[in-house]
């Protein structure tokens, strides 16, 4: 395909379409959340109170900062500062790691209290609460997988920058990786609001 000129607008358009599908994927979980919230409003509040708003807020800040970093890395590359761009991407990936570590502590704390899907404890608590926690684990779990994928895509883009394949004239790979990362961030903001804040 070497003789074909690259279609940047097309490549970006395709990425946006892919982001739509990701939104719909999480949309199914948000529908379940809405229906079960309507059915078990009190239980959702009781269960929601058990999530740590501090850790949730910290993670939100981590992701927002990381999104800022990846956006800056594109600008840095466009301005020809390859080294700074690489550092910024590296920083974004590091933030992804921090997010996952915090998430790990949140999850294991829940596990210690016997709160995990299929546990005997989940069968004892009110049905609405167990539904809340099941949805919480599935949603944050799926989101966590997206964080990992996002970090891998960013690492791929970083490699591209390093080898010069992604550069000040052709940065579409990095931009698309960045778009994906913003989506990961955006979905988390909704998850944060729905599971930590409003209840």
């Amino acid at each position: 395909m070497s003789e074909h000129h690259k279609d940047y607008t097309g490549a970006k358009l395709g990425m946006w379409f892919f982001l739509f599908t990701e939104l719909m994927l999480f949309g199914g979980l948000f529908i379940l959340y809405a229906v079960y919230l309507k059915r078990y409003p009190k239980e959702f509040v009781t269960a929601g109170d058990q999530l740590s708003v501090v850790l949730g807020t910290t993670n939100t800040l981590v992701l927002l900062t990381s999104s800022f970093f990846v956006a800056m890395s594109i600008t840095a590359l466009q301005r020809g500062d390859k080294k700074f761009s690489l550092r910024l991407i590296g920083g974004t990936i590091a933030f992804a790691g921090v997010f996952l570590i915090i998430k790990y502590f949140e999850w294991t704390a829940k596990f210690h209290h016997g709160v995990y899907p299929g546990s005997p404890h989940m069968k004892e608590i009110a049905p609405g609460e167990s539904i809340f926690f099941s949805l919480y684990f599935i949603t944050t779990g799926l989101h966590g997988i997206h964080v990992i994928i996002g970090a891998l895509v960013l690492a791929w883009a970083m490699l591209g920058v390093k080898t010069g394949k992604v550069n000040g004239k052709d940065w579409i790979l990095l931009e698309n990786a960045g778009l994906y990362w913003h989506l990961v961030d955006l979905i988390w903001i909704y998850v944060f609001a729905l599971y930590y804040l409003v209840l």
């Binding site: 999480f26 979980l29 899907p117 299929g118 989940m122 539904i131 099941s134 599935i138």
Partner: peptide
């Protein structure tokens, strides 16, 4: 299609972990 994706994922998780999202005895529907 992503909705089908999440549906079969939920079915899979339900079978493996017993999340109860579709099980009335655990509050699911």
């Amino acid at each position: 299609t992503p909705i089908l994706g999440i549906t079969v994922v939920l079915l899979f998780v339900e079978r493996v972990l017993g999340t109860g999202l579709f099980d009335p005895s655990l509050g699911g529907d």
